[in-house]
Each structure stands twice: as C-alpha cells, then as structure tokens.
C-alpha cells in the first residue's frame, strides 16, 4: 500500500442561503484555497474527483458546470460520485493506490437552499415500498431515535446534551452555520426537536491528497490515511437493527481503528441520536475529543458534510492538535452507509 495523506483542506462558510452564487461560484474559492496552500496548479493534479447531487438544487448536470471551476480543459483525469465527497475521497485514494496518480483534488458541494431537503432526500429511498410514502429525513431519524430510547441507550435529555456540546464547540468554528447555545426547541418529528436536527444550508469543501514524499513536500505535517473503508447496511429499514451500526463497526475494524486509541473523532451524525449509535459502534469513550468542529449539527451542507469530517480531522493533525484521529462519513437514511478513516501525524507513526 502507498502512504497517502490529506495535505490541504478548505471549506466555505456554511450559510442558510447563497442566492447570489451559483454552485461553481460558491465552490471556486475553496478550490483556489487548497491549490494555493500547496502551490499546485490544476495541471499538476493527477486526478480530480467530486461528490454532489443534482437533486439538491434541482439543476441537471450541475457537477459538469462545477468542473468549470477546476479548469478542466484541456481534459483532465476526472470522476464524480452522486454521494458525499467522502466517497469521492475514497475513489481518489484508490486511484492513488493504483499508481495512476500521485496527487488528487477532491471536492464536494451542496446547495440545499433552493429546495426542501427533507422532501428531496425521500427520492433516494427505495421506489417500491418507501418512496410513495414520502418519509422525510427527520421522520426516519426520529424512528431510529425512538428505538434508541426504547432500548435504554439514550433519552431526550442526553440528546439535548449532545446538541449543546456540539453547538458550544462550534462557537470556535468560523465556518459553522450554528454556534453557541441553541434552545432544544419544539418537536420536529417526536422524539427529535429542532435542536436535535442539523441546520439546512449551503456550502462546499475541498481537500488535496498526495502520496509519499510528494505529501511531505507539500505539507509540513501531512495527515496520513492509515486506513479507510466503507460498508453498507441492508437496504430494508425494517430488516435493520436501528440501534446498532454493524457497517460502521466493520469499516472501523478494517480501517485499523481498534489497533490504538485515537485522541479525536469527527463523526458525521446529522442528528443527535446518530452520535449515540456511532459512539457505541466505534467504542468511543470520554477520553476522545468528539466533534471539536461542532460536527454536522453545526453545519450540514449535504454532500459535503462527510468530506468536511475528514478535512476537519486532517486539519487538526496539520496544526499539531491531534496525533491520531478518526473521521467518519455517512450517507442515506438512519446511517445507511458508513465510511471510516484513521488519520495520523508523522511522529505518531514512528
């Protein structure tokens, strides 16, 4: 296996509305920031991969427009996933492993403000048994939350505490959409209150990956990807044990998480109740600094929020604030699919 690291990360400020910007106009500044941070130009990048969904803003082939912001002509080596950018990062990591590239630009963006994301996300569900009922994203998360409460894994007060801790941490995150104390609020879909749900907003993120000595040349302290894996649950909601996340557990095992403790974890848990599931699956205790960025409860640009978890974890390693960090991304209803990566700073590896 080649040593591959995240050497640069940038994200937009995440906002409820960005009416004055098209998707490429929103995205371009973060592309420039990661390129500037490494001194690379588009022509130096071996592979470019993005993650987004046309359904969010209702724009067909918006990802091809977004490519304008990369400078994709003459044609570059490029790919796209209709998923969170964390999976675009996975594809780029594989591409580098094959030896076909030494560097990769990975980006993702989501503009939820033009549409109604709760309804839009119903269109990712199975079209036979679920789609016709239009069960929205909060409703499905609430079913999972109630299952956790019934199982004695959490209660509404504990969920409120997760919300409070996340938004308090986000007060130090200049990019967060929601920071500082937020009231628990009314039920959106009981047992989940407004405070248990992520903000709806727009944003983008980008990272640069590099292999071996290239990474060392581009970044004083690269965040080495020691392991990365993603797994999926059975697609029938009623088949799954909603209080558990065996896919997260398996991905974490294969990523090598359990070999040594981590000091930091960036979890992609858009709903408070999902952090409860992930903590169980990942065996995280109070010694681990969970979501110092505030996590998806502070900013949840759909399709970018998972990539941002990888970026936030890497940035802490870049700054010397973490030696070994876990990053997690999720996709689909009730933590349907999960990606786990373990990142380390160089000195921790020796």
């Amino acid at each position: 296996m080649r040593d591959v690291a995240i050497v640069a990360f940038a994200q937009t400020d995440h906002l409820r509305h960005t009416d004055e910007l098209s998707e490429v106009e929103m995205l371009m500044p973060v592309l420039h920031r990661v390129l500037d941070a490494t001194g690379l130009r588009t022509s130096d990048i071996g592979f470019t991969c993005s993650g987004s969904s046309d359904y969010l803003a209702g724009r067909a082939f918006s990802f091809t427009m977004a490519l304008d912001g990369v400078g994709a002509y003459p044609p570059i080596s490029e790919s796209h996933v209709e998923m969170d950018g964390a999976w675009a990062l996975y594809e780029a990591w594989v591409k580098i492993q094959t030896g076909q590239a030494d560097t990769a630009l990975v980006y993702s963006y989501g503009k939820s403000s033009p549409g109604t994301v709760r309804d839009v996300l119903t269109r990712q569900l199975d079209p036979y048994y679920l789609g016709p009922l239009w069960p929205d994203s909060v409703a499905l998360a609430a079913l999972q939350a109630q299952a956790l409460i019934d199982a004695g894994d959490t209660d509404e007060a504990a969920l409120a505490e997760i919300a409070h801790r996340s938004r308090t941490a986000a007060a130090d995150n200049p990019h967060a959409q929601v920071g500082g104390p937020v009231p628990a609020g009314d039920y959106v879909v009981r047992p989940l209150r407004t405070g248990d749900c992520p903000p709806v907003g727009d944003g983008a993120a980008a990272v640069i990956l590099a292999a071996g000595d290239t990474a060392r040349a581009l970044c004083p302290r690269p965040a080495w990807i020691r392991g990365i894996d993603h797994r999926i649950e059975a697609h029938g909601l009623g088949v799954r044990e909603l209080t558990e996340s065996p896919s997260t557990r398996l991905a974490a095992t294969r990523a090598g998480l359990f070999r040594r403790p981590v000091d930091t974890a960036e979890l992609h848990a858009p709903f408070t109740s999902q952090e409860v599931v992930l903590r169980k699956a990942l065996g995280l205790d109070d010694s681990v600094n969970v979501n110092p960025s505030g996590g998806a409860l502070a900013a949840n640009p759909v399709m970018a929020a998972g990539l941002i978890r990888l970026g936030e974890a890497a940035a802490r390693i870049h700054r010397g604030e973490s030696d070994r960090a876990l990053a997690h991304a999720t996709s689909g209803p009730c933590l349907q699919q999960n990606l786990v990566a373990v990142l380390e700073g160089e000195s921790a590896h020796v």
């Binding site: 929205d136 609430a142 999972q144 299952a147 879909v189």
Partner: peptide
C-alpha cells in the same frame, strides 16, 4: 418503533398529524 409527525408534509399518507411506525406483522420477522 414510532415517531410522531405533528405536521404532515404533502404526499405523506395522512393529512392530519400521525405516527410514523415500523410494524412487524404477525407471522413476519421484519
């Protein structure tokens, strides 16, 4: 498991507040 929906959205099965439910039918395992 269940979740109370105080504000049904367009095209959802009922127009007045209802509970989303997962139901194990008698004779089924899921």
């Amino acid at each position: 498991t269940w979740a109370w929906n105080p504000a049904p959205r367009p095209a959802q099965p009922l127009a007045t507040p209802f509970a989303w439910v997962l139901v194990r039918l008698d004779g089924a395992d899921t």
